[in-house]
Design a protein around this nucleic acid. Structure first.
Lengths: 210, 210
DNA sequence: CTCCTTTCGTAACGCCGTTATGAAACAGCG
DNA sequence: CGCTGTTTCATAACGGCGTTACGAAAGGAG
């Protein structure tokens, strides 16, 4: 008996597409409920019935960016050399951030950055972190870093610790770069970044002293 | 002949005080021109005649935070051991960020974060970076790291590079921590952070291969 | 006392996020 | 086939925002 629904999943996708495009273009600041609704050919109330409000729409944009991010990181296939794979993963991490700076910012540097991440859920279970954690685990299991652990071997705790360390370095570098705070011209930064990862890697992967 | 000025430097300071308090309390999102003006006992037009607008007011808040930040970092006095001093500087860096998270965010994670930093001015000449750069230079001149440079010694380029590496790690860690993305409970983070700095330090300070 | 210049508080404009409201669209029933 | 009831959505309204235009206020000059 009711009037047929127009606020369905298809419209939700279209709204999310438009919102993603707007954010990619002008950042979160440029996203308005009215504008996104108009671009999708509907009214602003659709955003409220399908998402809940502007903030929730932004969270959905962040979640979608996180999916693409995880996919991007997962697409780097292993070469058999764990250390090289980990380095490639770090490079892919930065490549995504530079290719989609606004998407990266929505995930991490948004007001209340936890929005894009499952509320209260441990970060270690997010796909993005898992990819990194797995690569670190592989590097700790064999290769040069494994020797430092000797017969005790590296456990999950070691992988979480090392992955977080590497993540902090990559995240910090990328944030500084996106904010224009690196003291080097753009054409030097690729090599500088790789050099930083190479320099910090062994120490960050090594077991804690005693 | 004119009507006496009320929009003077004293009012500017009061506005900046109120704006800083509002941002410290509720983040940049909570800052409105009308509210800050009312708190300072004036009208919103004062913000426009003294700063230029909301964005410029936020930039001034960021600049003041940067001053406090630089002062905070500069207050860590040398102990004679360059490596220990550098570690203490890293600890002070994080302590400020945790004590004034919104101030830290206004400096770095604000929309158009360059606002708080001199437009176009090289980052290497900012007080905050200089303090870090000097500490790194000292660590490269004597102590364990100096040996790796051998007879060639470390120059300004080496100090800039190493300082940026350390900065990226500290910044990334702090941003992850402020965003609630570290996989450890708060009471473990102090030690984890120091461990990360210790682990990455030697590699980040070392000269580039070949 | 009057005029003129400068200055600032007030009010207006357009836009925002959000919410209330009434028209629209269909199923079942007389 | 028309009426009714129910659900759904577009429209309009509300309060608040950043910003700007405007007119009142204030004091020196004549």
């Amino acid at each position: 008996m009711p009037r047929p629904r127009v606020h369905d999943d298809a419209l939700r996708d279209r709204l999310l597409d438009e919102a993603t495009a707007v954010v990619a273009e002008g950042g979160t600041r440029a996203l308005t409920v009215r504008d996104v609704a108009a671009r999708a050919g509907t009214s602003s109330s659709a955003v409220y019935s399908l998402f809940g409000g502007r903030e929730a729409l932004l969270a959905a944009v962040g979640a979608r960016a996180a999916e693409r991010f995880a996919g991007h990181l997962g697409s780097t296939r292993g070469t058999g050399d764990p250390a090289a794979d980990l380095l490639a993963l770090g490079v892919a991490y930065r490549r995504f951030a530079l290719a989609e700076p606004q998407g990266y910012r929505v995930m991490f540097a948004s007001p209340g950055a936890g929005a894009a991440h499952p509320a209260g859920g441990p970060v270690t279970e997010e796909p993005t972190f898992r990819v990194l954690q797995d690569a670190v685990r592989a590097a700790l299991a064999e290769g040069p870093a494994a020797d430092a652990y000797g017969t005790r071997g590296a456990d999950a705790e070691d992988a979480t610790r090392a992955a977080t360390h590497v993540w902090a370095l990559a995240h910090g570098w990328v944030m500084l770069e996106l904010d224009g705070l690196l003291p080097w011209p753009p054409d030097e930064r690729d090599a500088r970044y790789v050099a930083a990862l190479r320099a910090a890697g062994p120490g960050l992967l090594a077991p804690p002293p005693v």
